[in-house]
Design a protein around this nucleic acid. Structure first.
Length: 144
DNA sequence: TAGGCCATCTGGTCCT
DNA sequence: AGGACCAGATGGCCTA
C-alpha cells in the first residue's frame, strides 16, 4: 500500500514537475549510449598513438599552463616508462568505462518522465536528476 | 557550422 | 614502486 501510494504521489508530482526541468530538457541531447560507446574512438589502440606523446623534453602540459608544479620539477621528474604509461592508460580506460556503465544503470532508476524526448539523459543530467529524485523521495517519505 | 557530449590519453598527486 | 583518482587536452560524432 505504502509503496503504491508513494509511487502514485510521485507520478503526480512528476506531472507538476515537468515544467520545472522542461527547460533543461531543451538541452537534452546525446545519442544512444551504445552508439556513443561504440562509435567514438572505437578501438583505443587505433587512437593510441594519436597525438601528444612526446614533444621533445618540453612538457606538453607545462605549455598549456595546467596544474603543474612550478619550475624545476618539470625536468627533474622522470617520465613514466612507456610500458607503465600504457598500463595506466588501460586502467584509466576501464575505470572510466565502469563509471559510464554505472551512470547508465543509474539512468534506469529514474522515472521515464526525465527523458521524455526519447533521448537518453546525459551524464550530468543523470546526476542532477538523480539528486532531485532522491530529494523528492525523501520529502515524500518525510511527510508520510 | 558551432556547440554539446563523450571516450581516451596523459601527467600530476595521493595513498598503500 | 605502482595503483587510483583527478583534471586538462584532444578529436570524433551528432544535432540544431
Amino acid at each position: 500500500m505504502d509503496l503504491e501510494d508513494v509511487t502514485a504521489k510521485m507520478l503526480s508530482e512528476w506531472k507538476s514537475h515537468e515544467s520545472t526541468f522542461g527547460e533543461d530538457q531543451d538541452s537534452l541531447q546525446s545519442t544512444s549510449p551504445q552508439s556513443s560507446m561504440d562509435s567514438m574512438c572505437s578501438s583505443p589502440e587505433m587512437c593510441y598513438s594519436s597525438g601528444h606523446q612526446e614533444i621533445g623534453d618540453f612538457s606538453f602540459t607545462g605549455f598549456t599552463g595546467r596544474r603543474t608544479t612550478p619550475t624545476s620539477q618539470r625536468m627533474s621528474k622522470p617520465k613514466m616508462s612507456t610500458k607503465r604509461r600504457m598500463k595506466a592508460s588501460e586502467r584509466e580506460k576501464m575505470r572510466m568505462r565502469s563509471l559510464a556503465e554505472a551512470l547508465h544503470q543509474l539512468r534506469d532508476y529514474l522515472p521515464p518522465d526525465y527523458s521524455k524526448r526519447g533521448q537518453p539523459l546525459t551524464k550530468i543530467q543523470t546526476l542532477k536528476y538523480t539528486i532531485e529524485y532522491i530529494n523528492k523521495l525523501s520529502d515524500i517519505l518525510g511527510h508520510a
